[in-house]
Design a protein around this nucleic acid. Structure first.
Lengths: 208, 208
DNA sequence: ATCGTGACCATATGCTAATTTGGTCACTCG
DNA sequence: CGAGTGACCAAATTAGCATATGGTCACGAT
């Protein structure tokens, strides 16, 4: 085991050949089943049947059912992250990048919530149980956030006194009500104004 | 029914004579039982026996078991609020009042979590289910927060451009990770530094 | 060797029946 | 008339069991 604990592995719980046609088939089947019936109501025997192999064979590729859940969850979160990164790239100023980062995350998460409730529940569970997929996602968001802030400091748009780590972790915490799936659901009413208010608050705090 | 919806009534669900010796006995018994066995494992028959009256008599004072839970919960939250107000009063500057308000809330909440886990669970449930007791508590915190900010604006310690309502609700949201019982439990590791960081972030944002 | 599986086990889950529990009401007693 | 209650009911909870499910392994096929 050479797993890096400090940098959660999104491919945790995987086994056997890393890129194998069957692995992808399992993931595709799992995505479809989890979305239609939910993680709990899907049995690994169902997935086995869907790909046309025996249940035991599934375990050549994943250590456990939860590992499959991880993979699907990581995929969902990855889609959100990709959209967020795209939104960030569209913006020119660090301020605007900052806004778009969190707006995109909330928008995409809300979309998932309404369109694929069952996958959203999986992601919510991943977050509350602190699965590697969720931790990895948060780490990616924080990395992106840090880059934006550093950029803003270079351009003189943001203040430079506060230690960058402190700023980042504080912002991640302050935005938790919109990042953590369960909280997002809880704070749905009031969106998107409530989020804008918090973003404005933080941006005022970043002002030089 | 003349219940004011916009200003949640902490005494919601009560019935009969408002100040009656028996009512207080019920509350005391409920406090003891909920703390020892939990809300779920306590039956209203237990409370009736503890007070020495019949179960039916309990319902002369409370509309439901949940109403009794509300009362106990409101009592817990009130203790936190009292401690927080005392801490605020000890401080001179608005900045320090601000720090103490949220520090005291977190400290007291954490105390409750460790010392009276079962009552804490009741409060957590109250928050997630948005019972009037929890809403009333949040309203009181926000009121106190508003007063501190207004004071800071008067003394010139805080900026005056941002609409006060926007500032307040944004801060309440940003502090949610330490206010909402479930989130507090989730964010226990890293305390109290993580909270200090968010408080610092907000204070920077409040700077004129 | 590599790909693949049926048979197997301990635990989790679903299900039904029996019991508790929250809540009401007509009623008694002083 | 007001303080207080036993008897009662629908809905929730529990207990106990049959089944399903997650997971492994020795083994066969190619």
């Amino acid at each position: 085991m050479t797993t890096d604990i400090s940098h959660p592995d999104p491919a945790a719980g995987q086994r056997g050949p890393a890129d194998h046609a069957i692995r992808q088939q399992i993931i595709d089947a799992a995505d479809a089943h989890f979305a239609r019936f939910g993680y709990g109501k899907t049995t690994v025997a169902d997935l086995a049947k869907a790909v046309g192999f025996s249940k035991a064979y599934i375990y050549k590729f994943f250590e456990s059912k939860q590992a499959i859940g991880e993979a699907i969850c990581a995929q969902c979160l990855d889609k959100i992250m990709v959209a967020a990164l795209a939104a960030v790239d569209e913006a020119r100023t660090p301020t605007e990048k900052f806004r778009r980062l969190f707006s995109a995350i909330t928008t995409k998460s809300t979309e998932l919530l309404f369109q694929e409730k069952l996958l959203y529940d999986l992601a919510a569970n991943s977050a509350t149980e602190q699965w590697p997929s969720a931790l990895g996602y948060l780490a990616r968001v924080e990395t992106t956030l840090r880059e934006i802030i550093l950029l803003g400091r270079e351009t003189g748009e943001f203040e430079r006194k506060t230690p960058i780590d402190e700023t980042c972790s504080a912002i991640m915490l302050a935005m938790q009500p919109f990042m953590h799936p369960l909280l997002l659901e809880f704070n749905l009413d009031g969106l998107p104004e409530s989020q804008t208010r918090v973003i404005n608050l933080i941006l005022r705090s970043l002002a030089p």
